[in-house]
Amino acid sequence: MEVKEFTAASFYRFLDRKKLMGSKCKKCGALFLPPRPFCGQCLENEMEWFQFSGRGKLISYSVVRVGTTMYEEKGYGRDTPYCWGLVQLDEGPRISALLLGADLSRPDSITIGQSLEAIFPDKREEEGERNPVTFRLE
């Protein structure tokens, strides 16, 4: 694999290849998701890529009925809500993700602590579009 910089561009390119990649500090072992080049724990900048399992649990969520223009243009809206939330990976770090697989007409049917798994929908056609991090409730 070619050497990639620890940037958002690299993160999303990995995501397109169905890999949830973060960075790991070679000095102190701290994990970062999304990846970053500089360790916020020990302030060193010797990182290596780290692949996350994609398994985690739900920390928080919201069912959105008034979205951003980007999401309204994807077809979401008052009667077609979407759900996003925070996921804590089994390895520790947290990430924001679009959440699929829940009954959005009953938001309180979703349980905090529920297990989730990363999924990798096919990349959209639009030039330059970054696919969102996406998880499915199990």
């Binding site: 919201s62 993700a97 905090i112 969102p132």
Partner: peptide
């Protein structure tokens, strides 16, 4: 965070909704 929050559909009400669901739980 435009790159990692807005990309998954974050809006301000939904950011504070995260805080609310955890506080409620």
């Amino acid at each position: 965070d435009a790159i990692y929050e807005v990309s998954v559909g974050a809006t301000f009400p939904s950011l504070y909704a995260q805080i609310a669901t955890v506080h409620m739980d």
